[in-house]
Design a binder for these strands. Structure first.
Lengths: 236, 236
DNA sequence: TCAAAAGTGTTTTTTTTACACCCATGC
DNA sequence: GCATGGGTGTAAAAAAAACACTTTTGA
């Protein structure tokens, strides 16, 4: 044991969470204002040190609640990548971060300042390039991953509450990719593929605005499961 | 510094490498026979401890050479996922492994036993379920990743030498997915998409066997870059 | 009744698939 | 010549895209 300890270098391990939500104008990300050194006062991704007997994913959920007050129950969460370049953390010893990607419906999540961090939602473009540590790189990696996952998996529905209309789902893709999608074709495609969403046979109440009330759908596939055919390609 | 050290738990960090090659009968993986405890005598993925100031990818390449004699120059290598469940390594303290996915052309790589490990190529199905530590889980994760990457990226060409024929490339997909692909359609598709391969305007010499000599191609895209359209779908 | 959003039908265009056929080489 | 794999042509089938049109609601 003493031999084990002396022979190999030791590392500190953290988890960071890139939590995305979809606003009307595009992708939003949850950031906290750091209350301590290093990078005090600067925006960063929520995260913190892993406990001695803790799974990474558990650590990510715990830190999310502690730092932002956002409940991690039912939150879609996946390991993104591990960032461990020497010197990425200015403190002594190497601090390695297992970054996680998460998605929420945003509506039922009102961030509050935690013990040592004030949390807020921000547009991704607004904070990109301004974050502490190497969190700009982590955020960029997460954006790439999201864009590709949207195309090939059922992840898009995770930006919405458990039940949603096809218009809302279409809005997610339109906001994410900055293009407009034909409502009719989108409707047909989603109703045809059986491995993404399923209708509830109930309509939204009260009707959200003008127009015919839309039917409610539920996600049927695992958020990260690959779909039989890419749901949406380009300018449908 | 003393405060820093005493406050947070410490971890040991390793890298493991899942190196794949494509044999005639399907996917092959490089394994080593462990010479030390724990799991002495059992097959495992090549890997080892990260040095104090070493990048993960450098560590992966170093361990690959040290344990198997396979040169990692020009080898396609990507982080797969980090495995850190408490107890995954029976030794004291937590040992966390940053697993890497790698692909080689196999032909120019003759493994030899290293200092404390005897390396050999094995069919994935042969070793699946028999590996040390949680390497079965790592291998399974790597197989899933490979299957999905083959479909959406230019990774397939990484199983071949720098210059190759379209028949060889077709063989990679046929072996990986266990189906036959129409040679004519494959030819057209690969010649049409400009973001995967490019012809050299030279033919293979000497002609490998009977039949018209095939033209040589080179990979043009980054191995892990997403292609404009999935190269192959199903039973083309 | 009108505007607006949901949802369906239909035609055009593009892509995929199947498969016939020609090409170039070794034996 | 002829077998064999490389490569092209072409037509049928399927999918995607464009867009006209009907339905159902609030105002």
């Amino acid at each position: 044991m003493a031999r084990f300890t002396s022979e190999f270098p030791v590392f500190y391990l953290t988890v960071d969470v890139v939590l995305f939500a979809m606003g009307d104008t595009g992708l939003q990300v949850l950031v906290v204002e750091r209350g301590e050194q290093p990078f005090a006062g600067q925006a960063a991704l929520p995260g913190g040190f892993v406990l001695p007997d803790e799974e990474f994913e558990d650590a990510a959920r715990r830190e999310l609640v502690e730092e932002t007050g956002i409940s991690a129950d039912g939150l879609v969460l996946q390991q993104l990548r591990t960032f461990g370049a020497p010197g990425r953390d200015p403190r002594p010893h190497r601090v390695v971060s297992v970054a996680h990607l998460a998605v929420t419906a945003h509506t039922d999540t009102c961030p509050r300042g935690g013990t040592d961090a004030a949390a807020r939602w921000a547009h991704v473009d607004e904070v990109a390039g301004t974050l502490a540590f190497d969190h700009d790189e982590i955020l960029a990696t997460a954006r790439e991953r999201i864009a590709s996952k949207l195309e090939y998996t059922a992840l898009g529905a995770s930006f919405l509450p458990p039940e949603f209309t096809l218009s809302q789902l279409r809005g997610v893709y339109e906001a994410a990719w900055g293009l407009t999608i034909d409502p009719g074709n989108f409707q047909r495609k989603l109703r045809t593929c059986t491995d993404f969403v399923t209708p509830t046979n109930r309509t939204v109440i009260p009707p959200s605005g003008r127009g015919r009330p839309a039917q409610l759908f539920r996600r049927v596939a695992d958020p990260f499961a690959l779909l039989a055919s890419p749901i949406i390609r380009s300018g449908m």
